[in-house]
Amino acid sequence: MDTARTLGRTRRQVLATSLAVGSATIAGCGSGTEREESNNGDAESGEPYSVTVAHLGDVEFDAVPENVFVTFPQYADMLVALGHGEAANTLFSPEMAGPTMNMFYDHLEGVDFEWEHLSNPLEHGLVEEQLYDLDSDVHLLDPSYVLTTEGDWEESDIDEIAETIGPWVGSFHSGVHSDPADAYADDYEYDTLWELFGTIADVFQERDRYEALEAVYDDLRTRIESALPSEDERPTAARVTLGEDEFYTYHLNAPGFWQADTRPLGADDALADYDWSGDWGVLDYEAMAEADPDIILHLWGITPQYDIESVRDQLEAHPIGSDLTAVENDRVVAGGMRYQGPLMNFFQLEMTAKQLYPEQFGEWPGYVPGAGYPEIPADEQLFDRQRVADIVTGSS
């Protein structure tokens, strides 16, 4: 690292971190049930507090962060959910994530996210100069991600950013339970989406909001699980992204929060017998025809990145794709984003439940690109929009 960049700077006293190895005080399961408090002190009274992250130890704060480095959209969604959306100073792929998030928020009175001024911090790789320029109170990015994807970063660089600017908080590898960097491997713990959200809530001292939203989630999960058909009556489904004469493929029921909108629904994964190294696989049309799912959930289909109608047209025009059962039965549907926070997860669980099990949860009205998340009849909504909005805006 070029230490000349830090000349003239004083060491940050507002926010600092201790990266000593520690064990997390996180407990619970995928339903987001019990979880121990991991913060000490009281930010409102001016006392320091700490948040425990298994592979980072006790991350210390003297004040609630107001200027926040945000990478993947799940963290931005968490900030919005906690009433701190305005603190974000960056966002990964803002032109995709921002409109998609607001498409959901349009159904939550008083909730929105101003993303247009945010730049993509990973567009050209993670650049240390940018981190110094942003001078963030906290970096919502797993430093293990940095070490495993950014070849010119070393552990000493991670430590210096934490000590001179602000700490790191995140758990990237919890997305698909991938292997963390060697520096963190011994202490790494895989969090569910709601466990990770709980950690972020502790960073911002918003435990009440978190617990209120968690209660909505528990109700939603209970409603879904109680109405699921028996396993032998569930359809086969495949989660894919259509590429150039190939499919990027993902497992529906694999561990990790990237599957937080599909795993709870327990559909029969048509690609379960296919294995791949890394976060996803690649199959050609012949292999997809062999799997022949009843339903194709097209990942990213609700984002501006893909036009689901164009995807259907491409499949119908292909000599093999046109014979797929999902294509013949008009069950190629727009799926959600993997990078989902709690608010996005509410809508994506509702959407996917209706796409997979219309008899149990009501027909999915369909997604029209550019038209927003469709209106769902009040008696077929799977969670209370107003309750969520009131929690987020502090009206409850």
Results as ranks from 00 to 15, higher is better:
N40W: 10
N89T: 14
E189Y: 04
E380W: 05
S322P: 07
P73V: 02
E155W: 15
P365H: 03
Y132K: 07
Y367N: 05
G41C: 05
A27M: 11
E290W: 01
D142V: 05
E114R: 03
V332S: 06
S38C: 08
G30H: 01
A326P: 02
E206V: 02
E214R: 10
G170D: 02
I224K: 00
D379L: 08
A389I: 00
L19G: 14
P167N: 05
S322V: 09
G8K: 15
D2V: 04
T149E: 04
Q381F: 02
Y274S: 08
M351P: 13
H177L: 05
E123F: 10
S18T: 00
G41E: 03
T249C: 07
F172Q: 11
T352M: 03
S277K: 13
G198R: 00
E290C: 00
D179N: 11
Y306I: 10
G110S: 10
G22A: 07
W280R: 15
V176E: 11
P121C: 12
L122V: 09
Y217F: 13
D112H: 03
Y75S: 06
A326Q: 01
D232M: 05
M78F: 15
P377W: 11
W364Q: 14
A97W: 02
D42A: 09
P365A: 14
V21S: 15
L82C: 06
E47I: 00
T249R: 01
F72Y: 10
Y105D: 00
D187F: 13
W364R: 06
G336K: 00
D379G: 12
S178F: 03
L7Q: 15
V146P: 01
A289S: 02
T325N: 12
D245A: 11
V80M: 01
G362M: 08
L82M: 14
P48H: 11
R239A: 10
W280N: 09
P180C: 12
S45K: 09
A270H: 00
Y367S: 05
V216Q: 14
L213N: 03
P293R: 01
G281M: 01
A215Q: 08
E36L: 06
D58N: 09
W153E: 03
E116V: 13
S18G: 10
Y248L: 12
A227V: 12
R9I: 13
M288P: 02
P255G: 14
E211I: 11
Y373Q: 05
T148S: 13
T148Q: 12
V14A: 09
T25Y: 12
A326M: 14
L126Y: 01
L265T: 10
T3S: 07
E363V: 09
E47N: 07
Y248P: 01
R11K: 06
E231K: 07
W258T: 03
V68P: 04
L56W: 13
T6W: 10
Y49W: 04
V392C: 00
E163D: 09
P255I: 10
H124L: 07
F172I: 09
G301E: 13
G341C: 14
N102Y: 04
L299M: 12
D323I: 12
A317K: 04
L297Y: 15
E114C: 00
S45M: 09
Q314G: 04
V282A: 11
R209C: 04
D390S: 15
W258I: 02
D2R: 08
V368P: 07
S396V: 01
